[in-house]
Computed example of a mutant assay.
Amino acid sequence: MRIIKDAVERKNEILDIAEILFTQKGFDGTSTNEILEAAKIARGTLYYHFKSKEDIMDALIERHSSQLLKASKEISEDTGKTVYERIVDSVVALKMDRNGKEIIEHIHRPQNALMHQKVQRTILNGLTPILAGIIHEGIEQGLFHTPYPYECVEMLVVYASTVFDGDMLDINQQEYASRAQALIFNVERLLGVESGTLSFASQIFKKETEG
């Protein structure tokens, strides 16, 4: 008896299988036929959901971005943590694990510049209000002092997503560390706190460096 699955379930199943193959063999090393064979579906079924292998990768990127932003938002709303803890953990939640390595490499390819831009736009539009909400709480608690919490976070996210992207600027490890310190230094002034108050945020960049 043939098992009939709804469109959403079938689409996610294809994405799950493709992600495993991309992680194991790389995007270029995985053929459409291998995805078909692993998913045990006909070619027509695959093309009903996706136009090409590139379309599958695009869908994986969108799914990952959505999942990461959801996790970030859930952390930001965890009142069991301090404002400072939620700021760091909300940002760290956006970092892909080793299974996302192939996705990151795909995004940074020159021919995928538009997809790269789309991901950056998604992060900017998704992370900014999340962090701004935490900053608002910090203001209410007397931790931060700024009349422009949203704009401050927006500047932070735009700068960070450009300088620490790994593709936009050609900087070495020392320059990376220097820019991280400079960013924290200036964000402290934007938020109206004493120097050293946000030194905890260095965790974000340290984990990025180690990863």
Score class of each variant (00 low, 15 high):
Phe50Trp: 04
Tyr47Asn: 02
Tyr47Val: 07
Lys51Ser: 07
His64Trp: 13
Phe50Cys: 03
Asp55Arg: 05
Glu54Lys: 10
Ala39Phe: 10
Ala59Phe: 01
Ala39Tyr: 11
Lys53Ile: 04
Lys40Trp: 14
Arg43Ser: 13
Glu62Gln: 09
Gln67Ala: 13
Asp58Ser: 03
Arg63Tyr: 01
Leu60Asp: 02
Asp58Lys: 00
Ala39Thr: 12
His49Trp: 03
Ala59Asn: 06
Ala42Gln: 13
Tyr48His: 08
Ile41Thr: 13
Ser65Phe: 05
Leu46Lys: 09
Glu54Phe: 03
Ser52Pro: 09
Ser65Met: 11
Lys70Gln: 12
Ile61Phe: 05
Ile61Lys: 05
Leu69Cys: 06
Leu36Tyr: 14
His49Cys: 04
Lys70Cys: 11
Ala42Pro: 06
Asp55Ala: 10
Glu37Val: 15
Ser66Lys: 09
Tyr47Asp: 02
Tyr48Gly: 01
Gly44Asp: 06
Ile61Pro: 05
His49Glu: 01
Leu69Phe: 02
Glu54Pro: 04
Arg63Val: 00
His49Thr: 02
Glu54Val: 04
His64Leu: 11
His64Asp: 12
Thr45Pro: 03
Asp58Ile: 00
Ser65Gly: 08
Glu62His: 12
Lys70Glu: 13
Arg43Trp: 07
Gln67Met: 06
Ser65Glu: 10
Thr45Ala: 08
Lys53Asn: 03
Lys70Leu: 13
Ala38Met: 14
Ala59Tyr: 01
Thr45Tyr: 02
Ala38Asp: 14
Ser52Phe: 07
Glu37Met: 15
Gln67Cys: 01
Leu69Thr: 04
Ile61Gln: 08
Ile56Gly: 00
Tyr47Pro: 08
Glu37Tyr: 14
Leu68Cys: 10
Asp55Cys: 02
Ala38Asn: 15
Glu37Pro: 14
Asp58Gly: 01
Glu54Tyr: 07
Arg43Ile: 09
Phe50Gln: 06
Gln67Asp: 11
Lys53Pro: 06
His64Ser: 11
Asp55Pro: 09
Lys53Glu: 04
Ala39Met: 13
Phe50Tyr: 12
Phe50Asp: 02
Lys53Ala: 05
Ala42Ser: 13
Ser52Glu: 09
Ala38Trp: 14
Gln67Trp: 00
Gln67Asn: 10
Asp58Tyr: 00
Glu54Ser: 07
Ile56Val: 08
Leu60Arg: 06
Thr45Asn: 07
Thr45Gly: 03
Asp58Glu: 06
Ala59Asp: 04
Gln67Glu: 12
Ile61Glu: 04
Leu46Arg: 09
Leu68Ile: 10
Leu46Glu: 06
Thr45Leu: 06
Ser65Asn: 11
Lys51Pro: 00
Leu68Asp: 10
Asp58Asn: 02
Asp55Met: 04
Glu62Lys: 10
Ala39Arg: 12
Gly44Lys: 02
Glu62Ser: 09
Leu36Trp: 14
Ser65Val: 08
Met57Ala: 11
Leu46His: 08
Asp58His: 00
Arg63Gly: 07
Lys40Asn: 15
Asp58Arg: 01
Tyr47Gln: 07
Ser65Thr: 12
His49Arg: 06
Gly44Ile: 02
Asp55Glu: 09
Glu54Asn: 12
Met57Lys: 02
Ser52Ala: 10
Phe50Pro: 05
Lys51Asn: 08
Glu54His: 07
Tyr47Gly: 03
Leu36Glu: 14
Arg43Gln: 13
Leu36Ile: 14
Glu37Ala: 15
Phe50Met: 05
Leu36Thr: 14
His49Lys: 04
Tyr48Ala: 03
Arg63Asp: 03
Tyr48Asn: 05
Ile56Phe: 00
Arg43Lys: 14
Ala59Gly: 09
Met57His: 01
Gly44Met: 06
Leu69Val: 05
Thr45His: 01
Glu37Trp: 14
